[in-house]
Structure formats: structure tokens, C-alpha cells
Amino acid sequence: MTSRAGSTGIDASLYRRQGQWCTALVDVSLGTTAAQEAVDALPEHVGKLLGSQQASEADIGALKTALVPAEGHAAPVARFVAVNNGEVVVDEIIDGLKVEASDVDCGPFPNLVALARARGGQFPYLVVEAGRDGGEVRLYHSAVQGVEERRGVTGDPEEAHHARKVPGTYSEPKNQSSTEEIWRRNADDLAKQIDELARENYVRLIVLAGDVKARELVASKLAPAHKPITSILEQHTRTGGADQSVFAAAVQERIDEVLGRDVQELSERVANRSGNGRSELALGFDEVVTALQQAQADTVLVGQYQDDETLIALKADPWLCGEGSDEHSELVIGSWPAPEVLLRATALTDATIRYVPEGVLPDGVGIAALLRWPKNTDAGD
């Protein structure tokens, strides 16, 4: 997997790659004999669909190879694969998505709408389990099952053991001080691992659990930028009797809180910009297209998917134009469903796209954009 759509949208570099693209969104659910048979037949079925769209043999072979079952994932589950010039560039499992019929596309740029809809608003986060002997940091993505990266800090058991040994007993101040210094050192190492992973992956949530004293030490040593996004769970998960299901539910609750705050914030931003002639808000299909043409859109908000509209994709700035337009004729690539062209233009103008639930946009509005600068002014004003 080389790219993921998140709250910041799709990686624009995908649209800048040359050559043909082939994408497939397919159901890879298991659990029944019929489902297993359907998954087994997928490579040949998708290969035929690609062949009918004049895909190259290299692209067909690469995509067929990637279509493997989603072992260990509860149904429904889909797989999204994008291939460019015989290379699998994106290969992701989408949990919870039911695909009724395989969706296969070939063209000069990738159709990443399904992936963006599934991933939009999701984010990377860390789960940390701290102990006095060290701890573990795990990197996850809120829309993806399983650990993406794992790092650990393991203190030296012999060092801790000798700090408690004779002369005297652990309760004596000298030996207790030595032991606590080891704990502080382990906490410092663990905090450094957290800060590094958080910074490299732009995490939006750090869930910290474990031994009471250890998690307090770790929390105190985190970088100032990461303390506000740290949520401490009053659970000692590094014990043999720890209930992992309770722990997982508590982590999911923190994730849901972040997602809920995001939607609430977007709703408030739309409401706040709806007055004063809404100079910083584009409402409706035509206004959003205009904003994207001017690279004025900061965040595109999609409540309805605009599947009944089409747009013309351009090979350079301004990246898109409406059907029937005679402007930029020398840049025209072709006409495609609006969701594909809108997503491409959003990525190529460094904007964000969010697929939002009902209630965020005003009644009767299916698409909107929060603007970088007010309408009827120049970017430099």
C-alpha cells in the first residue's frame, strides 16, 4: 500500500503519474462456500473486464495477482486495487463496504472515488501500553484493520534486579532511587518513540494505557505538540488478566470522539460562513467547480455524490471545466463522471475532500466548499 486517502484527501502524486491506470473495487468477503467460490473466480472475471477496456497485459497481470481473499476480516469487506504501468500502486482492504458488482475502470488517470469515500476523515493514531520495564507503541489507521507499525522499549531486567539487591532492601532510599531512575529512563525512551511516530505519521490521537506510574511518566515527557492529543486510559493492559475487549472498546470510543468532533467542526464552519453574503463559502455544483478552477477551494464537502453530473478533465491547470465549455480546448483529456473529476481537481489543487453526513450542508445542497479567500477578491489581497 503506497497511498491512503485520509482527512487530507488523495495523494496528488498519483494523478501526476504518466501512462494508463486500471482500478478495481471488488468484494473479497469470505465466510461461506459461495463467497469463497466468488473470490476464487475474481481474477479471471476482472481480467476479462480489463481486457474489454483495452488494458495492457502487464496491467491485467498485476491487478489479477493482487486480488486475493481478505483473510481474517469480517464480511462485508472490499478490496481496492489501482495499477499503473504494470505496477500495483494502491492495494487496500475496506472493511464494512459491501460491493454488489465489481467496479473496474481503465483510463488516463485513476478512479479513486471509492477509496476516498471510504477513507475520507479517517486518521492515523497510536496506542501505547506503558510499563515500568518499558512498553510498546503501535501505529494504526482508523479505517484499516491491523497494526501498521510496532515499536517497543524493553528495559534491562538484570539492571532492575541489581538495583533492588543487597546491601539493604528496596525500601532503602538509595536502592529505591536507583530503581526509579531506571523507570524514568524507560519512560523517556518510550516517549521519544511516541513523538517520532506521531510526527512522522501526522497522528491525531495517542491512546496511553498501562501501569499508573509509567503512563504518568511517559505523558509528562511527551512533546508539547502531542500532549493535547493524548488520551489516558485508566487501564493496566500489560498484565496477564487484562480484558483486551474492554480495552479495544475504550480505544474505539476515543476514535469515535475525534471523528464526531471533526463533523461538528465542519458543520460549524459551514454555518459560520453562511452569513455575510457567504463570501467564503461556495454552495452547489457550479460554484464548487468555479472555486476549484481558481484553486480557491480549501475543503470540498460532499453530501451527495453528484453521480448524475459529468465534467471535462484537463491535463493542466485549471484541471477541469464544465460540459459544453469551449475554454481550454487544448488541454481536454475527456469527459468523466463528476465525482472522479472533482476528486482529481481537489487533489491537484492541494485541497481536502470530505464526504459528510446529512445535516452538515444546508438543505437541498449536495456539495459545497470552504474557501481559502473570499469571493470576488484576488488571492494576494
Rank of each mutant, 00 (worst) to 15 (best):
A5V: 12
S7D: 09
A12V: 04
Y15D: 13
Q18R: 15
T23K: 05
D27H: 00
T33Q: 07
A34H: 07
A34T: 09
Q36R: 13
A38Q: 11
A41I: 01
L42W: 08
G51Q: 15
G51S: 14
S52R: 11
A58R: 11
A58Y: 03
I60W: 00
L63T: 12
G72R: 07
G72E: 06
H73M: 00
H73K: 10
A78V: 02
G86N: 08
G86D: 05
G86A: 06
V89W: 02
V89E: 13
E92Q: 15
I93Q: 12
L97Y: 05
V99F: 10
E100K: 13
A101D: 05
A101T: 08
S102P: 10
D105L: 10
C106G: 02
G107F: 00
G107Q: 03
F109L: 12
P110V: 04
P110A: 08
N111P: 05
V113Q: 08
A114E: 11
L115Q: 14
L115D: 06
L115M: 09
L115P: 06
R117G: 00
G121Y: 05
V127K: 07
A130C: 10
G134A: 05
H141I: 07
S142D: 15
E149L: 08
G155L: 05
G155M: 01
D156F: 07
E158Q: 13
A160S: 08
T169C: 04
S171Y: 09
E172H: 15
K174W: 12
S178A: 14
E181N: 04
N186Q: 00
Q193H: 00
D195Q: 07
E196W: 07
A198E: 03
V203I: 10
A209N: 06
D211G: 11
V212P: 03
R215K: 15
R215C: 11
K221S: 01
P224L: 04
A225S: 09
A225T: 09
T230S: 05
S231I: 14
I232L: 08
T239L: 03
G241F: 04
A242F: 00
A242W: 02
D243A: 02
V246H: 10
V251M: 02
R254C: 06
I255T: 01
D256I: 03
E257Y: 04
E268R: 15
V270E: 07
N272V: 07
S274E: 09
S279F: 03
S279Q: 08
L281P: 11
L283H: 01
G284R: 01
A291W: 09
L292N: 14
Q294F: 10
Q294A: 14
Q294S: 13
A295M: 03
D298H: 05
D298N: 11
V300G: 11
L301E: 13
V302W: 04
Q304T: 15
L311Y: 07
I312W: 10
I312Q: 15
L314E: 11
K315A: 10
L320G: 09
L320T: 12
E323W: 08
I333M: 15
I333N: 04
G334W: 10
P337F: 10
P337V: 14
A338E: 12
E340A: 13
T346L: 11
A351N: 00
R354V: 00
V356I: 12
E358D: 14
E358M: 06
L361H: 06
D363Y: 01
G366Y: 00
A369M: 02
P374I: 12
K375V: 09
N376E: 15
A379M: 06
